[in-house]
């Protein structure tokens, strides 16, 4: 009986603003799982949590910053990355983690993403990709699959989506991975790894949005998870060009890029501030 006793505490209590729970995320939403993976990875990574900051943009995933006990900054729509860049450059001791959604990071914030990757800003970017604008009620995003129904594409999405790992790789990210919320252990391990990498690390996390995406496309949360289970193929080391995302057929997961190149600060110190080295 003892082990069935109801417990009031949670293993992540030390990481969470428990006075802000319950959170806003819908039943069946995947953001909470991605967020938990991020919290567990931070605890496991050994980084100094007092020196770790979470920065978010706007949207459902952007609310993540409001639930962690870390120093956290909930910024404007799309601008988490340049805000995080300023933080990191002002105080290189900080571990700066951006936790935000696909609409935020890749439509309104797309320009900031590619430039921060190009400069190799030493930050970790975790993108919860639910293929949709959830907070505003299910509009098409830059990640919405072609022909998918959304409130702004009622006849089907005429646009093709970005491949986020390919975009990250082409822009210069030094760590690129894609997982789903079903692959929690791989995801957590990947975030932990990325936190300990120098340079621009990017992890895409596929997550269901039953409210915004599922309803319109006749896909229940469990259906989405089944797709994650049955149609995903883990190919670590695959070229980002080959990281396909065809929900009817095959989705490539894995760590695609993990290499080292000088960060913005390395280059700046060497080029502009050698006298302080």
């Amino acid at each position: 009986m003892e082990k069935n006793k109801i417990r009031s505490d949670h293993p992540l209590d030390a990481m969470l603003r428990t006075d802000r729970i319950p959170h806003i995320w819908c039943p069946g939403c995947g953001i909470g799982t991605a967020f938990s993976a991020c919290m567990v990875a931070m605890q496991a990574s050994g980084i100094n949590l007092d020196k770790t900051v979470m920065v978010s943009g706007i949207g459902c995933s952007g609310r993540g910053a409001g639930y962690t006990r870390l120093d956290s900054y909930h910024t404007t729509h799309g601008r988490a990355i340049p805000f995080a860049s300023g933080m990191k450059l002002a105080n290189p001791e900080l571990n700066v983690v951006v936790f935000s959604g696909d609409g935020d990071l890749f439509a309104i914030g797309g320009n900031h993403f590619i430039h921060a990757a190009r400069r190799n800003m030493d930050i970790t970017v975790i993108c919860v990709n639910n293929l949709i604008y959830g907070m505003t009620g299910g509009q098409a995003a830059a990640t919405t699959p072609c022909l998918a129904k959304t409130t702004t594409t009622p006849l089907g999405n005429p646009d093709p989506p970005f491949s986020l790992p390919l975009l990250a790789f082409a822009s210069g990210a030094t760590y690129v991975a894609r997982w789903t919320i079903l692959h929690t252990r791989d995801l957590t391990k990947s975030i932990e790894e990325a936190l300990n990498r120098r340079g621009f690390s990017f992890i895409e996390v596929l997550a269901p949005c039953p409210t915004g995406y599922g309803r319109k496309n006749k896909e229940r949360s469990l259906d989405t998870l089944k797709i994650y289970q049955e149609r995903t193929v883990i190919k670590n080391g695959a070229h980002p060009m080959d990281a396909v995302m065809d929900f009817g057929n095959s989705i490539t997961l894995g760590k695609f890029v993990d290499h080292d190149r000088p960060t913005f600060s390395d280059n700046y110190d060497r080029t502009c501030r050698p006298h302080f080295a």
């Binding site: 920065v55 900054y73 340049p82 805000f83 860049s85 300023g86 450059l89 002002a90 900080l94």
Partner: peptide, 11 residues
């Protein structure tokens, strides 16, 4: 955005 981030980091 960058100058706000820098200021929040104390600079």
């Amino acid at each position: 955005a960058s100058i706000l981030g820098a200021s929040c980091a104390g600079v």
